[in-house]
Design a protein around this nucleic acid. Sequence first.
DNA 1: CGATGCGTTGATTGGAATCAAGCATCGTGG
DNA 2: CCACGATGCTTGATTCCAATCAACGCATCG
Lengths: 249, 249
Amino acid sequence: MTNPLVTKLKLFARLSGSDKAALAALTDAHVRRYRPGVDIVREGDVSRVVHVLLSGWAGRYKHLNDGRRQTLAVLLPGDFCDHGVLVGCPMDHSVGAFREVTVAEVEPAAFEGLIGARPHLVRAFRWEALSAAAMQREWALSLGRRSAIERLAHVFCELACRLRVLGSATTADGALPLPLTQEELADVIGMTSVHINRTLKQLHADGLIALRDRRLSILDEDGLRRVAQFDPSYLHLGGEAARLDARMG
Amino acid sequence: MTNPLVTKLKLFARLSGSDKAALAALTDAHVRRYRPGVDIVREGDVSRVVHVLLSGWAGRYKHLNDGRRQTLAVLLPGDFCDHGVLVGCPMDHSVGAFREVTVAEVEPAAFEGLIGARPHLVRAFRWEALSAAAMQREWALSLGRRSAIERLAHVFCELACRLRVLGSATTADGALPLPLTQEELADVIGMTSVHINRTLKQLHADGLIALRDRRLSILDEDGLRRVAQFDPSYLHLGGEAARLDARMG
DNA sequence: CGATGCGTTGATTGGAATCAAGCATCGTGG
DNA sequence: CCACGATGCTTGATTCCAATCAACGCATCG
């Protein structure tokens, strides 16, 4: 299996064989495994290592005193769990494993050594951060202004894009893995699990999706995108970053 | 009047006199003025300069096809209008002036020259970016899980903190400027202007705030924070960044 | 076998949107 | 000077989307 961090960064910069090897080595040094529901980093922690998700799904979330909880980002293999660890700042939110995950723990020194030795990688990481920030913004737009059905359609579109890039999408029938309970999905969307259930049925009734056995089939992608007003350009997953990078040297 | 960028970065790193002068010089080279309602950067633009807000209020926003609109961040003097311009990426959102504003246009080369000559400033900018990202996340939590009154209380708490740091808060009675129409505030909160109006009255009836002539008086800050479940630590405005920085060299 | 977790469904409530109208202030031009 | 429209604030009536409350089915699992 190829390294998911490499898979992702390839979209953001041209990587030589030795770049790839170095990146893979970086994330192979220390790998930890977390059980479902366990926090990888917790609010208030000042973590000393950078966590990179290698397999499984995780979620960045915050919660209020009374238990209300909001997932801010769904993390897929290749994603960073913590940003800003480099300046030793306490986390303002938590990251938890949705299901069983494996996580690379990278020493900040090793990380800085890598980009010191391969300064052209800085651009890739910057694009990566840019893409993450753009997702966060699109998310806020969804939470603030999209209706339940639009929001759900939008997450599905986004996840489909991100999963395809990772190559995790390709299961015979083209269905995507969706290893989230409706409860968890509700925290992502900012709704109730009950209402998630009804909205799912709505999307199904409209012939847009089918969901079974934790697998999501997108039956009418154009339709789904239309409902969600989804435009994938904010994700920068088309590889234009790498192309741009190449052109500009 | 002192330079607002300097005022802000002082929180994130110790700045020498010449640091301050250099930063001020950076933002003094080209200053533009924008009228209320005009966009400073527009979605799709690939701007060639970095925009730093010097005076007035601006907003980062996205909108949907049918006119629904969501403000993602309120920008105050010292804030950056665009992130990621350094990699020449098209904006995925717009930034508009709420009222009359002045904006510094900084050449990327000048910017990189500055941090090249004063590498310790990198930390300050990194903290700044961190703080902005944390705000974005807290925002998403609000939009997803806080009720109307909680959301409104939360923005007011956040703005109060940010304005105080800038020194713009100090008007005799301690009231804050709030140069937004209820319509604009509605786009910030993700609600309707009608409902904003009612929620404002609610906050007033509860003895928490008073709003008159575009000036916000916080009558009971503890109460307001309790309603909002507001914890200012995510803003990193307490100066702990600068202290940490000094300690770590 | 009961326990638990997850999904499904129905009935009801409630919060915010929507629709609609009225009123102030203000700048502008006849 | 007043008429006028524009803009922003306020309020009421109504609608509707999603939350809440509650129950049940159905797996899996120890």
